[in-house]
Nucleic acid binder design. Structure first.
Length: 476
RNA sequence: GUGGCCGUAGCUCAGUUGGUUAGAGCGCCAGGUUGUGGCCCUGGAGGUCGGGGGUUCAAGUCCCCUCGGUCACCCCA
């Protein structure tokens, strides 16, 4: 059975290309722009770390560590793990480099969790996120939540809910925990099978268990938010007031408990209300003031969030937002014969590419008809035709294929080309054609298509990615 | 880890109560006279019907096993 086996991407993973990868790229670059304006520099970390980095920070009792980590032993006998999330890696980097605080970083990349795949849930999934290390100031809580919330909004997503909670701190959580345990113990029989046994292990979990039995018991349980110490209460008030002032709508979710142990004080989750599937969390985050210490660093407060790209995309599709422009070449080069013409055509397309012009060709060995069909299908604005005649006098015949996408060029062409070569160019209709010098053509086209895209992408750090032809996020 | 649904060309699917060389649309390739797209016409390539076993004169169609996909529980992004 396995001798003629055909391979496919591993379960829970997939190949991204065409329309989908363009959307990924659009979202990622929009995020880069959004976060760099707020002073968050990009942090890249390895896709794998020593497994202990995750175990000690995320928590031994969590599902993520318990049953979802991709662990392996490397050839040196070290126990490693693919990263199931990014906060632990960021904390490790923070401890390793001791950067000046507050340290604001953003990240984007794949995470790995071994779970059964499902709608909106993958084994390799992509997150965008940010962390701030070194300040406990509640203003930063507001900042981080605002950034997450407004980014989602900037994609055009409208139906979402921000749920907010405070989990208390080392001071008030233990006392609350006792109250909760004693309440739950007295209602032990009403709990679902799983939580009846694991009650004292992680009592908070019972609060967001979705089984009807637990929901009923949890409904009457004391909640942390009513048992905060003075410091925590003051901090939380500051966050809620800050959000209100910043125009971010939220609802209190006293039973919101996140699945990673390191969270304390402010925690939040943003769910997409347009998502039908069970996986409707677009993202979430919170404060983790004990995390850095837990992996051997100095006592350092921190807060962050992460968003799931796949979920964002799902929500965009559900709401019909994130529309990308057409992605088609400006020029399509058609070569009519082999030999000199093909050489000439080759020079032309390299000049176009070198000048930063989005250009394509279909191969000179194919028939004229096939090349023209390919040109039409590509959506190119212009076709540059090269045959023996053109090759002989160093020219190209240019034909308008798509008037709309050529519109930006038409004005330029009107003055430039009319004056230079053509008087039959008075009306720009599709199918109009004119012959002109190859250098002249390249300079005109390069001049009007943003020829310095690549250069500006490299130098213009803040933008990250240029508003190139076609790839841009549309904000309604 | 547990359960429901599904597996026929690259994609979306037809395939009658089991019966001759397994079909359509889209896509792809090539033509429809000499150097010109989108429409139309013609032709072509492409499937061991997920895999294995069984029942039968005969199985894409029935039975069993297995693999894969998908959705849900759980957890989260």
């Amino acid at each position: 059975m396995d001798q003629a086996k055909s391979y496919r991407a591993p379960s829970g993973t997939r190949d991204l290309f065409a329309e989908e990868s363009r959307k990924f790229e659009a979202i990622t670059s929009a995020f880069s722009r959004h976060m760099s304006f707020a002073g968050y520099g990009l942090l890249e970390t390895p896709l794998f770390e020593e497994a202990a980095v995750f175990k000690r920070s995320i928590g031994q009792g969590t599902d993520v560590v318990n049953k979802e980590m991709y662990e392996f032993e490397d050839k040196g006998g070290r126990l490693m793990s693919l990263r199931p999330e990014m906060t632990a890696s960021c904390a490790r980097a923070f401890v390793q480099h001791s950067p000046p605080t507050p340290w604001r970083v953003r990240y984007a990349g794949p995470m790995f969790r071994y779970e059964r795949p499902q709608a909106g849930r993958y084994r390799q999934f992509y997150q965008l996120g940010a962390e701030v290390f070194g300040t406990a100031d509640p203003e930063v809580d507001t900042e981080v939540i605002w950034l997450a919330y407004k980014f989602i909004e900037s994609l055009g997503i409208r139906s979402m809910t921000l749920k907010l909670n405070s989990l208390g701190d080392a001071n008030c959580r233990p006392q609350y925990r006792e109250k909760l345990v004693s309440y739950l113990s007295s209602h032990r029989d009403g709990l679902c099978d799983e939580h009846r046994d694991r009650l004292s292990e992680n009592p908070m979990r019972v609060l967001d268990c979705k089984r009807p039995e637990c929901v009923e018991v949890a409904g009457g349980a004391p909640v942390q938010i009513d048992h905060l110490c003075d410091d925590c209460a003051a901090a939380f008030r500051s966050v809620t007031e800050g959000l209100s002032r910043a125009g971010v709508a939220f609802e209190l979710a006293p039973r919101l408990v996140r699945g990673l142990d390191y969270y304390m004080r402010t925690t939040f989750e943003i769910s997409g209300d347009s998502l039908a599937s069970a996986q409707n969390a677009l993202g979430g985050g919170g404060r983790y003031d004990g995390l850095v210490e837990s992996i051997g660093g100095p006592q350092t407060p921190g807060i962050g969030f992460s968003l799931g790209i796949e979920r964002l995309l799902l929500a965009c599709d559900a709401e019909g937002v994130l529309s990308l422009g057409e992605w088609s070449p400006l020029v399509f080069v058609v070569c009519l014969s082999q030999g000199e013409a093909a050489i000439h055509a080759g020079r032309l397309i390299y000049s176009l590419w070198g000048g930063g012009v989005n250009a394509q060709a279909a191969g000179s060995s194919r028939s004229t008809k096939a090349q023209m069909r390919a040109a039409g299908k590509s959506g190119a604005a212009l076709v540059a035709i090269v045959g023996d005649e053109e090759a002989a006098n160093d020219s190209v015949s240019v034909r308008i294929m798509n008037r709309d996408s050529a519109s930006g060029l038409l004005e330029r062409m009107a003055t430039d080309w009319k004056a230079a070569d053509s008087d039959q160019w008075s009306e720009f209709s599709e199918g109009s054609q004119v012959t002109l010098g190859i250098d002249r053509f390249v300079s005109i086209v390069a001049g009007s298509s943003g020829s310095t895209e690549v250069a500006s992408a490299i130098s213009g750090d803040s933008a990250g990615v240029p508003a190139s032809q076609g790839i841009e996020v549309h904000n309604p």
